[in-house]
Amino acid sequence: MANLSIPSIRERLFNTSRHETTTQRSTNPFSASSFKGNVLTADVFESSTKQNQPVFTGKLKASALVGTISGIGEKFQNIINSVVGFGVRVKDSVVNGWNKLEGIEISFNPLKERMTSTYNSIKEIMGTSISDLMSTGISAKSVSKMEDMTAARNMLAEHVTAWESAV
């Protein structure tokens, strides 16, 4: 019969090391009672492969969760990086396009100068401006070649009268 005196109970509660020496190597719930006083020296109920598998404790769960969170953050970071990269490429494209436009605009200046010089050359050759040729009015050149002086007199009189009447 077990010793249930107060000192013995206290000793078992606060000085357990001496009692655990007999049950230390076993997880067998029946090992304490033993079989007729013979204590089994080996844990025959425990699988040999079980020791190799990691035990999934609470800490491991938390660690896995943190790892998952950090993985999600990495994915987000990758997405952000790709978006930023896309923006940089767009910006580069726009800048390059603008530079090309500026180049095109500069390249048009010689054309403008060429057109101006051509216009001036035509003006010099023909002795009058293109606007004079395009207009339906009377040109000095045509009057200078008129042979009918009566018509020239009437023309001048008509237009001078129109001017004088407007004043």
Binding site: G137, I138, A140, V143, S144, M146, M149, A152, R153, L156
Partner: peptide, 28 residues
């Protein structure tokens, strides 16, 4: 009108016909 009068006077000034001088004197 201004442009037409200007061109007629300028043209008559260049016209080799001496009668153009009389036209400019009489009207202009």
């Amino acid at each position: 009108t201004v442009k037409n009068v200007t061109n007629i006077i300028e043209g008559l000034g260049m016209n080799p016909n001496s009668e153009s001088i009389g036209i400019l004197e009489d009207i202009g």
